[in-house]
């Protein structure tokens, strides 16, 4: 992915944190690519994605598992990446928002979020979409109330909830077989 280079982004110049002396090696598959990292045991999966792998689509909102902005799919299941350690993901397959599209073709959920205007500021959106991909894969939602209940781990401070439900409903209705959507 491209790096921001303007002066306003100087503070984000990506330099991998120096591994501490007791860093551990972790190998995992991220968005289809095999990656090997050296991280401290206390590095969260979220921080590994953002700081070590430059995958900044996954957001750090609360860092306590309360907001859902850090939602990613691990072995196809949605989880909060802030509440698991990178070393615990050894050998796992991780899919982030960056891994959902196929080339220039957006994931059906990404298209539906655009069509339904399902975001305003966009900060929670990567987590919302990854969570929705997990929801479709799980296959337990039938009604809009089910969608609301099963998406309750993703907060949206802009209050785009009605349109988020509509976007997920659109994909559910269009392709009951969209249950493969979560894992490329």
């Amino acid at each position: 992915m491209s790096q921001p280079t303007g002066p306003a982004f100087q503070g984000h110049a990506r330099k991998q944190p120096a591994p501490p002396p007791d860093a551990m090696e972790v190998s995992l598959t991220i968005n289809g690519s095999r990656k090997t990292l050296r991280v401290a045991p206390w590095t969260s999966l979220l921080d590994a994605l953002r700081l070590h792998l430059d995958l900044t689509g996954t957001k750090k909102g609360c860092d306590h598992g309360q907001c859902g902005a850090c939602t990613v799919l691990v072995d196809g299941r949605r989880i909060n990446s802030c509440l698991t350690l990178a070393v615990m993901a050894e050998g796992r397959t991780v899919t982030t928002i960056e891994g959902l599209a196929s080339g220039d073709a957006l994931h059906p959920l990404q298209e539906a979020f655009v069509e339904q205007d399902a975001f305003q500021c966009g900060y929670c959106t990567p987590g919302q979409i990854c969570s929705a991909a997990g929801l479709l894969e799980e296959g337990h939602a039938r009604t809009d109330d089910d969608i609301r209940e099963l998406m309750s781990g993703n907060l949206c401070r802009c209050g785009a909830y009605p349109n988020i439900v509509a976007a997920i409903r659109q994909v559910m209705d269009a392709q009951p077989a969209a249950r493969d959507g979560g894992t490329p």
Binding site: G68, R78, I79, S131, G134, L135, S152, G153, N154
Partner: peptide
């Protein structure tokens, strides 16, 4: 209890 993500973990 919790959220779908947390129940998966």
């Amino acid at each position: 209890g919790a959220s779908a993500q947390l129940r998966n973990m």
